[in-house]
């Protein structure tokens, strides 16, 4: 939003001013200034009328309006400073203390959260989203840079700490990829060129390319996830990304995490997928509502990850051949064992 200069005030009609500065309407309503949105009048003329009639000051109204425009602009340009996130333990479902007492994360860290359904993965993500201060059923405390961050819960615009991505989310807007990204980039106060960068990054993640002109609603499941990941990585300013089960995504999962981590995000990913769980250098196991154990990935597990990725490639190749109408052959495991020196 441009600063509201005297020149703009003098030559703009109330109608176009209302369109350019959406917050003008609420200011007029609050102050009790009656107006007809289609009236061919400038704001200063309208205010002069009102000020004379009601014995009020037009200058005071304008000063307050300018202050609000500044506030909103500051919100847009804001970037979050956060380097460390800590989770301090609370209680399990029976009120017993959690076994893992503390988890420390910093920019560029990836933590996988595993555990059976109902073990408390979503509850943990909810605690982080809420920046809990011991005030949730689990009694956990979340620290941002060593301090509780309850005052940042309602931060909006560029100051939001947390972005979320989950299997249940989809695009509902009746618009093209380019239109939504344009709006998002604008609402974050960033350069328009980022729209094409984001589309390119999304296309790198999904095997099936789409263009900016593609309607959001006709994206496939994989393309949708790819676009959400790219948008969260590049357009969202939030330093913390919470991911809830995106396994059946049909995207290059390793590349997706790499993209998020390349933007120095702190990523927490709740998952049932062994490949996703092993992509993280550390994984937290949940049980009975509690943080039960924290595991560093071992060298052996890292080798297993490489094998899982190969299996994943085999699976993808079979999928492609099926879709192309080809006949399939049995997988030659003996050959694979020799090639990759499996036991």
């Amino acid at each position: 939003m441009q600063p509201l200069t005297d020149e703009i005030l003098a030559r703009t009609s109330l109608a176009s001013l209302l369109a350019d500065y959406p917050l003008l309407e609420s200011a007029l309503l609050e102050t009790g200034i009656e107006f007809d949105p289609a009236e061919e009048v400038t704001l200063p003329a309208k205010l002069a009328q009102w000020a004379a009639l009601r014995g009020q000051s037009a200058e005071a109204f304008l000063a307050q309006l300018r202050e609000r425009i500044d506030e909103l602009n500051n919100l847009l340009g804001a970037t979050v400073s956060l380097t460390r996130l800590a989770i301090l333990a609370g209680r399990d479902k029976s009120g017993q203390p959690e076994q893992v007492t503390q988890i420390a994360l910093q920019r560029g860290d990836l933590l996988a959260i595993v555990g059976p359904t109902g073990s408390g993965k979503s509850r943990l993500l909810a605690d982080i989203e809420w920046l809990a201060t011991g005030d949730t059923p689990s009694g956990r405390t979340i620290l941002a840079d060593g301090r509780t961050a309850a005052d940042r819960r309602f931060a909006s615009g560029g100051e939001q700490l947390i972005a979320q991505l989950s299997q249940t989310m989809s695009f509902v807007l009746d618009a093209t990829v380019e239109e939504l990204l344009g709006l998002h980039v604008e609402s974050r106060g960033m350069a328009a060129g980022l729209v094409q960068d984001t589309i390119a990054a999304a296309n790198d993640l999904s095997g099936e390319p789409f263009s900016g002109a593609t309607p959001l609603t006709s994206l496939s499941g994989g393309q949708t996830r790819a676009l959400m990941v790219a948008d969260t990585a590049l357009v969202c300013r939030s330093p913390i990304v919470l991911i809830d089960e995106i396994e059946n995504a049909g995207i290059d999962r390793r590349a997706a995490f790499n993209l998020l981590l390349s933007q120095e995000k702190i990523v927490l990913s709740a998952t049932h997928d062994p490949l996703l769980a092993l992509l993280a250098p550390r994984r937290l196991c949940m049980r009975h509502g509690a943080m039960h154990s924290l595991h560093e990935r071992t060298g052996e597990e890292e080798a297993l990850l490489a094998d899982l990725e190969r299996l994943d490639d085999i699976h993808a190749a079979i999928r492609t051949r099926l879709r192309l109408g080809e006949r399939l052959n049995a997988i030659d495991f003996a050959q694979l064992r020799r090639e990759h020196s499996w036991p």
């Binding site: 249940t168 990204l181 948008d231």
Partner: peptide, 13 residues
């Protein structure tokens, strides 16, 4: 919980 992060942020803005 059913829309994308982008749509949430644009809506809130």
């Amino acid at each position: 919980d059913i829309v994308s992060q982008a749509e949430r942020e644009v809506f809130a803005f």
